[in-house]
């Protein structure tokens, strides 16, 4: 699953734009990942400009 370092996030939406299963929800100053829908592909981690997201092996 993907973990969010919430205090680092700038809420820019770059992760949302590449998510193939549309499981990231972005509010004005809040981001949530739906772990039920997440396929742990890691694209959001790779594309995050600030390094806010971390991928764990376990789903």
């Amino acid at each position: 699953m993907i973990e969010i370092k919430k205090n680092l996030c700038d809420f820019c939406g770059t992760c949302v734009s590449v998510c193939p299963v549309d499981c990231i929800e972005l509010f004005e100053a809040r981001i949530e990942i739906d772990n039920e829908k997440c396929i742990n592909c890691g694209l959001c981690v790779k594309v995050c400009p600030l390094g806010v997201l971390e991928q764990n092996d376990e789903k």
């Binding site: 949302v16 590449v18 998510c19 549309d22």
Partner: peptide, 17 residues
């Protein structure tokens, strides 16, 4: 850039790397 409204309507807007 998120383009979720399109996805909600069935338009695949997900960006490749």
């Amino acid at each position: 850039v998120e383009s979720r409204i399109g996805r909600m309507a069935g338009i695949n807007t997900a960006l490749k790397m």
